[in-house]
């Protein structure tokens, strides 16, 4: 009996040991190239950002970034696997090595950047926390929500903002903890909570999926800064650089007018030196991060530049109808700014 237990323990230890060593393996780029496939941690279902359609094909704003990275690294935007992660499991999935990169509208915060040992290479959506309520509730400001029941996704920064905001304004609320956006939607529609709070973009996306979106409003108060960014493990700087500059390549693409339609042509004919460097005609920038010269060209070809992705997934022409706002290019009064490619 003792012996059986002992061998069991040894076997378990061996399994734990091997997976542990794998997770700690520093070179994510080598792992991804060897595997020939990129694994992205994504939202389990938030229309516009990451949601599978009836055939199981994922699409959305975060999905497009993941595909662009796959195109840059593996060479094919379809060589990706999406792992749905909840607010609770996402960082564990990343730090345990289950996913290579988290493209899951996660807020960049001090504690996550430092104590959780993550890195947020660059912001891909500047957001803030808002409240969604029924129109017939007669509420026009979040400050009128005294005594309300509020649905909140547990394990998010919004949970902490909510507590701070109501305390600061000296009003009370009753939290209802939920685990995913789908559960929040169901509880909110069933009337189990008066208001649903999360990032304003997430609220717009959730509302767009309602049967009667016109009967719900997003309150004007934005109570926090939520810079949503992809996340990678701390310590693998080269991999962080790849994610960061892939995102910047998409932003720079919009700035220089490089679209999915003209990228092929521009890569041969462009005379703009910045575009020539970006698309790999000169200076082989890709070689400096362990990729080939045409990495950025493939990233833009995958889903288009940042502006194209925004317009196709969450922009004003889509049911979600988000304005560019803070996420416009710096040349148009927004915060999207790619450092020079040289």
């Amino acid at each position: 009996m003792t012996k059986t237990v002992f061998f069991g323990a040894v076997a378990a230890a061996a399994v734990l040991g091997s997976t542990g060593a794998y997770a700690a393996e520093g070179d994510t780029l080598r792992t991804v190239k060897q595997r020939g496939e990129l694994i992205c941690g994504v939202n389990p279902g938030l229309v516009g950002f990451a949601a599978p359609d009836a055939n199981g094909n994922w699409s959305g704003f975060d999905i497009s970034l993941c595909r662009a990275i796959a195109a840059a690294v593996v060479g094919d935007p379809n060589k990706v696997r999406f792992v749905p992660t909840t607010g609770q499991t996402r960082f564990t999935a990343l730090s345990s090595g289950e996913v290579d990169v988290l493209t899951r509208n996660s807020t960049w915060s001090f504690q996550r950047d430092t104590e959780l040992a993550l890195d947020f290479p660059a912001v891909n959506y500047y957001d803030g926390q808002g409240f969604l309520v029924r129109k017939d509730l007669g509420v026009t400001s979040a400050k009128e929500l005294d005594g309300a029941t509020v649905c909140i996704q547990t394990g998010t920064t919004t949970e902490l903002n909510l507590a701070d905001y109501f305390r600061a304004n000296n009003i009370t609320y009753q939290p209802v903890n939920i685990d995913s956006n789908a559960e929040g939607e169901q509880q909110y529609l069933a009337g189990a909570c008066d208001a649903y709070t999360t990032d304003a973009s997430g609220l717009a996306a959730t509302r767009a999926a309602f049967a009667d979106p016109e009967n719900h409003i997003i309150l004007p108060e934005i109570i926090s800064k939520e810079p949503l960014a992809p996340a990678v493990r701390h310590g693998d700087n080269n991999w962080g650089d790849i994610v960061r500059w892939t995102l910047f390549a998409l932003v720079a693409g919009e700035e220089y007018g490089v679209t999915s339609a003209n990228v092929e042509e521009l890569s041969k004919s462009s005379t703009n030196p910045e575009v020539q460097r970006l698309l790999g005609q000169t200076d082989n920038l890709g070689g400096m991060i362990g990729l080939d010269a045409e990495w950025a060209k493939r990233a833009i070809m995958a889903n288009g530049n940042y502006g194209e992705i925004f317009a196709a997934t969450i922009g004003e022409q889509t049911p979600i109808g988000l304005a560019r706002g803070l996420n416009a290019l710096w040349t148009q009064g927004g915060l999207m700014y790619a450092p020079p490619f040289r």
């Binding site: 237990v5 002992f6 323990a9 040894v10 230890a13 734990l16 542990g20 700690a24 040992a117 310590g235």
Partner: peptide, 24 residues
């Protein structure tokens, strides 16, 4: 057997701490 079980336990704990440290 007692020593072996103890060693295996110690190795598990050590391995865990090591991997945690490697993740920062």
């Amino acid at each position: 057997v007692f020593i072996a079980v103890m060693l295996a336990g110690a190795w598990l704990v050590h391995n865990t701490l090591e991997n945690l440290a490697r993740m920062g």
